[in-house]
Design a protein around this nucleic acid. Sequence first.
DNA 1: TTGAAAGCGTTACCAC
DNA 2: GTGGTAACGCTTTCAA
Lengths: 330, 330
Amino acid sequence: MTTIKDIARKAGVAPSVVSRALNNKYGVKDSTKDLILKLAQEMNYYPNTAARSLVTRKTETIGIMMADISEPYYSQLIKGMEYIANQTGYTLLFSNSYESVEHNRVLHKMIYAQRVDGLIIVGSNIQEKNFSLSLLEKKIPFVLVERNFSDPRVNCIWVDNVGGAYRATKYLIEQGHRKIAHIAGNLYYQVALDRLDGYKKALLEADIDYSEELVVSGNFVWQSGYATMKDILRHHPQCTAVFAANDAMAYGALQAITEAKLTVPDDIAIIGFDDLEFSSLTNPPLTTVRQPRYQMGQKAMELLTDILRGEKKNGIKITLNPELIIRRSA
Amino acid sequence: MTTIKDIARKAGVAPSVVSRALNNKYGVKDSTKDLILKLAQEMNYYPNTAARSLVTRKTETIGIMMADISEPYYSQLIKGMEYIANQTGYTLLFSNSYESVEHNRVLHKMIYAQRVDGLIIVGSNIQEKNFSLSLLEKKIPFVLVERNFSDPRVNCIWVDNVGGAYRATKYLIEQGHRKIAHIAGNLYYQVALDRLDGYKKALLEADIDYSEELVVSGNFVWQSGYATMKDILRHHPQCTAVFAANDAMAYGALQAITEAKLTVPDDIAIIGFDDLEFSSLTNPPLTTVRQPRYQMGQKAMELLTDILRGEKKNGIKITLNPELIIRRSA
DNA sequence: TTGAAAGCGTTACCAC
DNA sequence: GTGGTAACGCTTTCAA
């Protein structure tokens, strides 16, 4: 591997000059700079990341924490982040933080080992406030995605879940439904709470009594949508519509309804939340609330980059709006 | 951030002793070692990654290249790799190599910048032989997944695609089908070629004439399955079964069949390949060939780790067997 | 068993 | 504009 010293020797200058030339800094004559650049190319020079970050104390790397990188939900988010990172030159380091306990491991690998300059944290487990606090204390720049944390020092990007759920439920009401069940997410998550709120709000507005019995809690995976839908079918046969807190659970619900030989949307209408890629392929295609995930990823990355570059100050909150996508399940 | 020097000072020893103690090397008295370990804990010491890898020339990081990290197909593969990496202490650095051209960027970010100790490359684009060759030349340890490259120096892990496709097709034949179409993948990919071969082999064995007209090529995404299925329906109404080279295209085919008011499997039977999570949720649930993806990820990671640790030599080839999962689409 | 010192490749500071 | 040198935090070698 060629080093800066090799180039310096060949060019007949000092290593420091080479460094400055390569980094486009002031104080290098054009002609020597040209020579150095030419030599670097010829000699196939690439800066050593470790050496550089040892002195600059920067890694040009951003850590991404999410519950499970392989959830289809995250794919667009990741792409949005990558798109910006490719432009700004940052490298992304992913970490699956399956559980809160794992946070500790991430802290080790990313923060203490000083592998990243900042963090993007996706997910809204409401018990994880402490983690944010400890990051704040350590002065690690970070942005929270899918989470609206009121602390004025933290950066948040989230979608208006209340509004999205409200619109979905309202749409069902407009279609004439009065007995509308809600398959909620795990209520440890802010998004689950918010979507439940939106559902209630629409009911209230339409003078429909809110009934706790019609709200069943799943945990965002299709299996729980399937199981809870079976319960609803058994205990509340008068239901004519269901609003599921995410698409995965809606898929499971669809499955349960199909198995019960009922048809969607004629017997039961169903609306999901997220608009996963697959949602246009269900039978019937799923009506759902689309989250601008690609855009969320982009915004999160842009924001963190700006903060790392000193172009923005901490404490920025960004709200994005979801959109009701009407297909054929409601 | 506490450094080794800080600990050395407090312990009244030299930095080198601290280093040795922390790394469990010979030549440190138990009592001083205990003291150092205790101090390290108290003072919240964590080694600086950059400094360490600058001298050891190791990053304890493995680069993962794949076409598109967000493809559901890859999720289990990633989990398998992570599982092993967590055990061995390696950090994973992902890179989406959407296209061959991108290889260059990856080389820069990972190899030239010396950010990784080795590479796992997932994908089977047959035009990418040169990339492997250049890695070989640079002496970067790597393993290829989903690819059987005959060069005796390269490590490969792949599934028996020919066998899987053969079994799927044979199953259709056993169900009485004679006019069986094949929605192939992009034939630049080895896996697409292999699955086509397996299909032919089963036909041949059953004395069914192979007809090129019944093979249409998609590019592995559902849209192409949808489009090609429409063609098949129009031009070959006598077809009673379809073998799709992957599940995504099978989903599209299912969609096209449903839209044509035909039923699966009565009018047309369909088999996919991969067994994505979603395949048990289609209507009807998809019969498909399951790839042991989690296991592939694990094996790939184990193999690379062993090679990096000097416990295995290059040139290892591993074949895994796919399994026919019979659901209700065929 | 311990310590001193060199060195990894880079940047940054200060003198020329 | 340029060069020398120290420094980043760590491991390794060699001598004590």
